[in-house]
Amino acid sequence: MKREILYFAWLRERVGLPRETVDTEARTVAELVAELVAREDRYALAFSDPSTLRVALDQELGEFATPLGDTREIAFFPPMTGG
């Protein structure tokens, strides 16, 4: 299934692009991360410590164990620093 992946802040800088479309069989966020990490070193570096990252599924915060289901847009980013 084709899904849109977005990266923000230092994660975007490490991956080297703000968004991309991936064709993936991953069933959960964690499986998607494993697929990305296996692709290239820059992903492995960016996702080297997933505990420092947050994920949003169709613009709602989720967890790495969250099933992807029909989610079209998955965003990865460091903890937010608003305000």
Binding site: T81, G82, G83
Partner: peptide, 18 residues
């Protein structure tokens, strides 16, 4: 502070830091 998706980067003479 921690639930709105904003990220701040500071640019100083020494460089840029998130």
């Amino acid at each position: 502070k921690s639930r709105a998706p904003f990220w701040k980067k500071e640019i100083t003479e020494q460089g840029a830091e998130w």
